[in-house]
Design a protein around this nucleic acid. Structure first.
Lengths: 245, 245
DNA sequence: CCAAAAGTGTTGCCTGTACACCCATGT
DNA sequence: ACATGGGTGTACAGGCAACACTTTTGG
């Protein structure tokens, strides 16, 4: 408490975000995330998580939301703090990185025209040097970012078991098959449609609508999120404090 | 990424720790934690979590262990990152606090002579102005530390359900009744001794010894931790990285 | 009519819980 | 002997996984 004031100059605080979405272009959906190509020297030309320095006037979560918007032009459907990384050697010049993870709805991503692995160039300040990669097929990553992405995916798999974060991957209205597909992609295994239906229905988190998704075979009922309650516990902060402050 | 370099001066990084132990002086055990009385002005005379500024030469976890040792003279039996708090208004002059939570074995605490709510004065550099409080009966706390303690206790209650962190409250050898008592104190409810035995035995985390705790009635077998494996997942970092770096 | 997905029913296992009961020791 | 906690047996209930089965559409 009373020790080493004055030495702490030189510690910088960065905020990065693991931004996850679902790609449905291939036969099986895949988890994809945007990465930024580094143009400066520590790990130049490697790919890194979107992020930036913490501005003294914004909270950690605001910084995460800001850099996320700068990278993708979007607002996340879910945002939660992941971990604070502060090993001495993780970067030249002491950096503490507070990392968040976020979910994006694929429909909003598609609307911006982010296809394949090419940098997108939609409305807004979408920067160059951004590309979307499959989570299972990542390029060389800067710093400890590969570890961080692994941990974010572990947290997602974990949290999908006791919350409804998976709905962060879906538009406001969706069928149970689409929800199940999201679960299956996250967990990496097939789920029994019958049991899945019962579990998710008995959880009481879904509201059936009167609409049906027609198309290939028997129409499937559309559901929507219960209300505007959180998809999951996002941490220790009261809801007010995460918004304002 | 490229924004606002140079502005980030003025952000300081602090590391604090919620240090939990079990008090068995009363009839029912209670969770207790050490607090530090503030002598400087933001929240002067309030009580605060032990902590201090991050030294550029130490990792976050090392800083937590160091301030923990400075406060209690002890090494923790468990140490895990809790959350990074970075609201703009939580302290004058922008401070990001990376908070850890730790468990101490009561026997090591007792050996230092920490009794009741008086500051302890044992060997080492145990500072003045430290007092131990019941977690259920806290004094006025500085900053957002009351929230933080609540969150640490929530995390402990949660984690006790799917790991063996509770053993962080026990000496190397203990009876099942002692382990159950730790669980009961953490969870705040009674557990069935018979079922508790079976659950913890079938989990395979305990090794029975040939020793028995004699005393009041029928001797109880002593158990010890499986091996030196971790009590629980402590985060995304590989074990090596948490020790050295 | 057929394929295929939507949706329902049924069964069996496995786990947690409640609680009856025996065992071993100090007093 | 008896009170008390250590330790075992058992039976019931709820949840989940497996899978048979019916319903409803497009071709």
């Amino acid at each position: 408490m009373t020790k080493s004031r004055g030495i702490e100059e030189g510690i910088r605080v960065a905020v990065s975000t693991v931004i996850l979405t679902l790609r449905r272009e291939t036969e099986e959906p895949r988890i994809a995330l945007p990465l930024v190509r580094r143009i400066r020297d520590p790990h130049r030309d490697c790919w890194a998580l979107p992020g930036g320095w913490l501005d003294p006037r914004e909270s950690l979560e605001e910084a995460a939301a800001r850099t996320l918007a700068e990278t993708t032009g979007l607002a996340p459907s879910y945002l939660e703090q992941l971990y604070a990384f502060g090993a001495v050697n993780r970067s030249p010049g002491r950096v503490v990185s507070v990392v968040y993870w976020a979910l994006l709805r694929p429909d909003t991503v598609d609307a911006l025209g982010a296809q394949s692995t090419a940098p997108h160039d939609a409305a807004g300040a979408a920067p160059e040097n951004v590309a979307w990669y499959d989570a299972s097929d990542l390029p060389p990553l800067a710093f400890d970012h590969a570890q961080i992405i692994d941990y974010a995916l572990w947290r997602l798999r974990n949290k999908v078991g006791y919350s409804r974060v998976a709905q962060g991957f879906l538009p406001p209205e969706f069928t149970l098959a689409e929800l199940r597909e999201a679960y299956e992609t996250i967990l990496g295994r097939r789920l029994d449609p019958a049991n899945f239906r019962r579990q998710v229905e008995s959880a009481g988190n879904l509201v059936p609508t009167d609409a049906f998704r027609t198309g290939s075979h028997r129409p499937a009922r559309l559901y929507r999120n219960d209300t505007d309650v959180e998809l999951a516990d996002r941490g220790p902060l009261a809801p007010e404090e995460t918004r304002t402050s």
